[in-house]
Design a protein around this nucleic acid. Sequence first.
DNA 1: AATTTAATCTGAGCGTGCTCATTTTTACTT
DNA 2: AAGTAAAAATGAGCACGCTCAGATTAAATT
Lengths: 207, 207
Amino acid sequence: MRISEQAKQESRSRILEKAAELFTSNGFDNTTTRDIALAAGLATGTMFNYFPSKETLGMTMVTEALGHGTDDFKSRRTGEEDLNEDLFLFITSGLRRLQPLRPFLGPVLERSLSAFPRKNVCLEGEAARSGHLEAVQEIISRHGFTTAPDYVAMTIYWSLYLGILAYWTNDESPNQEDSKGLIDYSMQFFVQVISGNGANTGGEHAE
Amino acid sequence: MRISEQAKQESRSRILEKAAELFTSNGFDNTTTRDIALAAGLATGTMFNYFPSKETLGMTMVTEALGHGTDDFKSRRTGEEDLNEDLFLFITSGLRRLQPLRPFLGPVLERSLSAFPRKNVCLEGEAARSGHLEAVQEIISRHGFTTAPDYVAMTIYWSLYLGILAYWTNDESPNQEDSKGLIDYSMQFFVQVISGNGANTGGEHAE
DNA sequence: AATTTAATCTGAGCGTGCTCATTTTTACTT
DNA sequence: AAGTAAAAATGAGCACGCTCAGATTAAATT
């Protein structure tokens, strides 16, 4: 049993490893599950014993990367950050770990993180979303917000975060500077939303 | 030639009609292109002479509905609205026309409007996005904004709009009141973004 | 060791969206 | 009317993600 258990783990990580290589060189959509299984030395069907779908395979890599990002965030923060800075640091810590996956991230995130309702929900995607949102709530509460943000605020946050991910995935600017601007802007205004001073200042330039 | 041309138009609208019926009763993903072709009295391959993909078929309905929504908006606005109200009216006018498509809208919009980069871009989706954003820019300029919003602002707008669409598609509250709250909040937030108040432009988080 | 039971692997096969060589229909020319 | 070329329709077939009945291997039991 010891040996078999080990062999299973090796199969699992070999699948992840080869899949990442193929996704990177050929793209997510152009890599078939048959290709991955072949590269990992398994039959096609066997792969689906380890990962129930190609989408789950991709999201497993994403979830692992984001988990490391959260660890990085916790060790990098000084405790002196204001809320904007804390959220900025949290998001960029995740992106840094997602960097190696960037070439094939689009199709994966689009399918798994989208807020649109779906028939086949990807568990990894749901977990990533709720985990991220809980972390955000926790960060917010550390900054003295006693009442948790309502559904409107968190829906807006998730929309902004998805937009950031989509932009960053495509960002060709040096060192993804454009994305940093977008994150900074998005988070500053999100903080305004949850601070409750966003509801009355429209239309200064009107007419 | 006259008759044939007419027959083609009839085939086209019969496809759209039957597809909408099937999508509504069985869902988008559970309706096959073979089902649609059969219902329209055509061979499978023939359908693809009219619509190059199932996704395009769905987006054609969306685009048409949103076009009518824009017409409604133009005839409903009084000219007295402030920017928030104008944007709110624009969005809700579109949603009202999308209402009949709501049961099968999720998979269509997710694939076609997402900001994530894709291999096979759906032309209808691109047109819908750029058309919508141009309309928003036009509305903004009517309210005295001389310089067009930059990429950050419009990226944020599109993120918020997608979030609204996703939420609304799922909204079970009576008369979709929850969605209206989200739209109102989101647009107030967006107006703040383009008004440039409250946000110190970023860079201080650079590392 | 032999036998039984459970876990794991396998690849032929299914249902998709979509393609394309072929057939059929249409519109024009003589 | 007959002939011709272009346009439209056809459905067998492809590649894909994924399934599942049966084969293979490992573990537990006697």
